[in-house]
Design a protein around this nucleic acid. Structure first.
Lengths: 120, 120
DNA sequence: GGTCATTACTTCCCATTGGGTACCGTCACA
DNA sequence: TGTGACGGTACCCAATGGGAAGTAATGACC
């Protein structure tokens, strides 16, 4: 039985895929595209605090791995639209659960305990 | 409507928590502890390829954020046992879905397409 | 009695990456 | 002539990732 499908195996490509998906900006970018195809500027506005360089790198990496598609329109000013591929849409399932879990459990983290009374 | 529970808000502590959980080693370490409390050496063996320095840093960070507990026994040679807290156990839900998704969909990634016939 | 093995780190060092700011190119419009 | 829009790239720096080796304490073994 090979290590092919074991994220705990160092040699398994799963490790690289997990590294790709288990990443703050990747998780946010894929989630942002759930709402439909988006332009670079819209993504940049949605992912608050991301710099253009990091956003570009994130999107390229996702594109390389087949999770999103990049469509360039030869216009001026340029227009580039990103969208989810079927694979990206599927990957969004577990990722959106993770995002939601974080949002719903944020008050349970010790660092945010002082804030927990803000909600009541 | 505050940005308190929005991972897309740069100022929200959710962002930090997502950064903590959406991380290769964190996701693997929490998953390894699902099987029960484990010693440092056992975790190191399970997380193939992790160096002691990185594993220590990962575990400390998870402990700081209340996801795992660290128990030290004053023995020689030393014995340190890590275990999930209730929060860590809950966080493992979405994370294990992510790990499983990666393992089950690994062949769909373009980089691994050539391997897809290995399974048949 | 001295040396080694065990265990969980810690320290040092280096390469990679993350990340920010400034800048680019093109064309409409003022 | 100059500015703004858009989607980047170039450059630079700091943080991080990561490996190899060292640390500490003591009981086992020779």
């Amino acid at each position: 039985m090979p290590n092919r499908d074991d994220v705990y195996a160092a040699c398994c490509p799963c490790r690289d895929m997990l590294d790709l998906l288990a990443n703050k900006w990747s998780a946010l970018a894929l989630g942002a595209l759930e709402a439909g195809p988006q332009r670079f500027g819209a993504l940049r506005a949605r992912l608050q605090g991301v710099s253009p360089k990091v956003l570009t790198a994130t999107l390229r990496r996702l594109e390389e791995h087949g999770l999103i598609a990049r469509e360039v329109f030869a216009e001026v000013p340029p227009r580039v639209v990103y969208s989810l591929t079927p694979l990206g849409r599927d990957a969004n399932g577990p990722l959106s659960l993770l995002r939601t879990w974080v949002e719903q459990n944020i008050a349970r983290f010790p660092q945010n305990r002082e804030m927990s009374d803000m909600s009541g």
